[in-house]
Design a binder for these strands. Structure first.
Length: 855
RNA sequence: GCCGGUGUGGCGGAAUUGGUAGACGCGCGGGAUUCAAAAUCCCGUUUUCUCACGAAAGUGUCGGUUCGAUUCCGACCACCGGUACCA
């Protein structure tokens, strides 16, 4: 009798069986023997309270790897936790008057329940949330170690200040120059902030990128660009006439092109360069210019369209290589005070930006690099600067050199003249981590009027967040708290004040992988790290993944880690998003897919009967109303269907479009798999036959296992899915039809159950149990293939005539080239294409193809 | 602008050392089963021409290398992502 698989009944049953067997618990390093370790980690979620399909895809992929590694004999660490500090909890507190802690822990409970329904092979015993005092206390201890080693420091710096909410905002929280919550115009304020000295490792962070051979190229390039190392020279331009106070030695500029120094026609300072600001005090034109430049700002679109603006400061400098040559000093809006020295020299022929500026203000343009195959007498620069390589000319001692050789020659000369030296500049800046927020990790220091900044003694950690806070007033609730910030100085015991800044939440996620590996056990951390396979979204390519690399290095330095490479993540996979179609009403409002209906070619809004339009396929988001709730999918189809669907079709690194019909297809396939097993009612494993039909079935199974294994190893889950589809079709055609092949069918089914376990673990257990196999399939080893079944005795070769397929022959694998050629030439199908033609050549590629070349 | 990626049927995509293009899934068309439906199963489905047997063209465009190119090389086009007055 044919039965159907019931996901609702089965899934819960098998999950509790896994729990009872404590199957996914990590084995301690001592007990693991010579098992290789595999640390499989997915980027831990923010506890928003609700799982979305993106989570399902992310964690399904990680689970495939974790389950596969377990089946192939690895000691697997596959943990889960919560990235739980951050603004949404404070927003909830302000909007709904719930405590951030309460809101967060409730969300965690809700999401944990959802996660558990997915049947992920997680070791929950290592779970933590970053807002647990144990976690942020350990983070505070780490902070103090960094402070002691000089990896953390305090300095005044410019920050985005929201004057309504009275808080610093991260760059991401400033939208079009306004605070994302208050809508107030954001000001630049100079505040004293805490910084991590990430630039200390700039060279190592960039150089080590090439050792990360299991990271996507894309991410490595993005990090390289972000760190932005450029090599060049820093040197001074002596001022003529009355020197500006503090600049008696001249104005310092940075350049990557000292070879073009003889093409210099101006020096330009940033609008907020100290000299510019000083001169503005007495010169109204300069003052106006600074204001104008500040008004345009440096937002993305502003830069796109903003004109080059400048003002002559009236100063003159001497050319470093020719003191008689005077060059004007300008201030220009394209010079950034935050990069290099905040001052540049313009060599217009060799730089488009300098050229635009020179043309606008009628400054000289003197080419000094002659492109190959140009003539010095006739070569001219018009509207396009030449930035490529060439021969230096019109440049005194550099004349005749290649640009490549002139570069070190010019630097050597600057050094000889004691005007400057070779330097390296980075785009990367130290990481400002101070936030004036409540729901974050308190910075564990005390400010004492006599002793200065005093670390909180380790015995007093964690510095706990106070529970009794109010969010009525804008700004930092820790600042407003009546007593929290009062603390005696640990050194002199006089009344002092606690630091009220908390740490950027990116800090929390920069070392959590290490906490999972071993909370208070360095040896255990050494055993597990680095993460063997990390899976997450590409949106973290720079920030989170760069910060994590920094933290591992810093933790190494303070003795918290023993990671020889300094790289915490050996393998990274960035998965694509889950997208869904969008709909809009006739009033241009987004509609949920359930609110529309297709009638013939057109879509209508069900409620009103008005026409609706189909929008683009986009990432699922609440605002576009194109989300699909995983809970709803799990209750109607089961977790296996949700997992299977998000792993099918699209390659894992690309986006996958969620479709109802695709989900139904996945549900159909689950039943199809079950029907293969359902047909095998004899639960005694019968002997495997050696007849032709049995061997054919066995070949299909063993080849499928081989292909699936390779696909999982290479992160090509969609290919594994396709192979499983084909395999199931083959088995279904045979299953239960012929007693002679029953043994082969049983073997295939038993292999199939194990191969689908990483994808559809609940179904796999039900199938495994139905076959009468021992134990849980989640604990079973990966099937082994018999190599003799992977190769065929005979092979079908296509025959081409002049590269076009004209026929095929089936030949024994052992035939020689000549024998194959003879058979091919005698083939009836190709005869008509050879008739009356000269055979020029016959190419036989053993096991592949025969090509007959005729004239 | 610069850097990177991707272009293959109606759609998602296979083809991973240069060797049968379109596996597998979705959709669509036809059929079987059924009183009927659901479910399931089978067949077909790149385009054009042909009653058919077949033939020709075809992997963004144009060219090249090769017996043979989705794959290698050159030039270009489109889309997606990242990034930017970075000196």
């Amino acid at each position: 009798m044919v039965t159907r698989y019931d996901p609702q009944a089965s899934e819960a049953k098998w999950r509790s069986a896994w729990d009872q067997a404590d199957l996914f618990k990590t084995i301690s390093p001592e007990d693991a023997g010579d098992m290789p370790k595999a640390y499989v980690l997915e980027m831990f979620p923010y506890p928003s309270g609700k799982l979305h399909m993106g989570h399902v895809r992310n964690y399904a992929m990680g689970d495939v790897v974790a389950r596969y590694k377990r089946a192939t004999g690895h000691n697997v660490l596959h943990p889960m936790g919560w990235d739980a500090f951050g603004m949404p909890a404070e927003n909830a507190a302000m909007e709904r008057n719930v405590h951030p802690s309460e809101w967060t822990y409730q969300n965690i409970d809700a999401m944990r329940a959802q996660f558990q329904k997915l049947g992920l092979s997680l070791d929950w015993s290592r779970e933590f949330a970053t807002c647990d005092p144990e976690y942020y206390g350990a983070q505070q201890a780490l902070f103090l170690k960094f402070l002691e080693s000089g990896l953390v420091y305090r300095k005044a710096s410019k920050v985005n200040w929201d004057p309504v909410d009275n808080t610093v905002l991260a760059n991401e929280q400033v939208i079009d120059g306004r605070g994302w919550r208050s809508g107030a115009l954001v000001e630049q304020r100079e505040l004293t902030q805490w910084f991590f000295q990430i630039t200390k490792y700039a060279d190592d962070l960039i150089d080590s990128l090439e050792t990360l051979d299991r990271w996507p190229e894309k991410v490595r390039i993005m990090q390289g660009n972000w760190i932005g190392r450029s090599q060049g020279a820093t040197f001074r331009w002596p001022l003529t006439g009355n020197p500006v106070a503090g600049y008696e030695d001249g104005i310092e500029t940075f350049t990557t092109r000292p070879d073009t120094l003889f093409g210099a026609s101006f020096v330009a300072l940033a609008p907020d360069h100290p000299i510019t600001r000083e001169l503005a005090k007495t010169n109204p034109d300069i003052k106006t210019f600074i204001e104008e430049a500040a008004r345009i700002g440096t937002t993305e679109e502003a830069i796109e369209t903003a004109p080059k603006l400048g003002v002559d400061l009236g100063l003159r400098v001497k050319h470093p290589f020719d003191p008689s040559w005077e060059i004007p000093v300008w201030s220009a809006n394209f010079v950034l005070s935050t990069y290099g020295t905040g001052a540049v020299f313009g060599s217009p022929a060799g730089d488009q930006r300098d050229l635009d500026f020179a043309r606008k203000y009628d400054l000289p343009v003197k080419p000094v690099v002659l492109p190959p195959e140009e003539d010095a007498a006739s070569y001219k620069i018009d509207k396009e600067a030449y930035t490529g390589p060439g021969t230096i000319y019109g440049s005194d001692f550099l004349d005749g050199m290649s640009t490549e050789d002139a570069l070190p020659a010019a630097i050597a000369k600057l050094e000889e003249l004691s005007l400057g030296e070779k330097t390296t500049t980075y785009r990367l800046r130290d990481w400002g981590v101070s936030r004036q927020r409540y729901w974050g990790c308190p910075i564990p220091v005390i400010h004492c009027e006599s002793c200065g900044i005093v670390p909180v003694p380790e015995a007093d950690l964690p510095v706990r967040l106070p529970d009794d806070v109010s969010f009525d007033k804008p700004g930092n609730p820790l600042e407003h708290h009546a007593t929290w910030k009062d603390a005696p100085c640990p050194k002199c015991a006089k009344p002092a004040r606690r630091e009220t800044d908390t740490l950027d939440t990116f800090v929390d996620s920069s070392w959590y992988y290490s906490r999972f590996a071993g909370a208070d056990n360095k040896a255990e951390r050494s055993y597990w790290l680095p993460v063997d396979q990390y899976v997450g979204g590409v949106e973290h390519a720079v920030l989170h993944l760069l910060y994590s690399r920094f933290f591992a290095r810093a933790m190494n330095e303070v003795g918290e880690l023993d990671l020889p490479t300094g790289e915490p993540i050996a393998g990274l996979f960035t998965q694509g998003m889950v997208t869904h179609e969008t709909f809009k009403s006739s009033q241009d409002k987004w509609l949920e897919p359930s609110e529309v209906e297709q009638q013939g070619e057109n879509w209508i809004e069900i409620a009103t009967g008005n026409p609706a339009t189909v929008g683009p396929i986009e990432k699922m988001s609440k605002s576009k109303k194109n989300t699909v709730d995983p809970d709803a999918i799990i209750s109607s189809f089961g977790a296996d269907v949700a997992r299977w669907f998000v792993l099918s079709d699209s390659p894992p690194e690309r986006d996958v479009e969620w479709t109802q019909s695709g989900a139904e297809g996945a549900a159909r396939f689950v039943q199809r798999v079950w029907s293969v097993f359902d047909a095998l009612t004899d639960s005694d494993s019968p002997a495997i036959g050696t007849d032709e039909a049995s061997v054919a079935i066995r070949r299909a199974s063993h080849k499928a296992v081989e292909a699936i294994t390779k696909a999982i190893d290479e992160f090509r889950f969609n290919s594994a899915v396709a192979t499983i589809h084909e395999w199931v079709s083959t088995l279904k055609k045979a299953s239960g039809k012929d007693a002679a092949t029953l043994g082969a069918e049983f073997e295939g089914a038993s292999m199939l159950a194990r191969c689908i376990t990483p994808f559809m673990p609940h179904l796999a257990e039900e199938c495994w149990a139905h076959l009468g196999q021992d134990g849980l399939v989640s604990a079973a080893p990966w099937p082994k293939t018999d190599n003799t079944l992977l190769v065929d005795d005979s092979v079908t070769l296509p025959i081409q005539v002049n590269g076009k397929r004209r026929g095929e022959i089936k030949v024994a694998k052992t035939l020689s080239k000549d024998e194959v050629e003879a058979i091919a030439l005698a083939n009836e199908e190709v005869a008509s294409f050879l008739a009356g033609k000269d055979i020029k050549k016959v190419i036989v590629v053993p096991g592949r193809i025969v090509n007959i070349v005729v004239a």
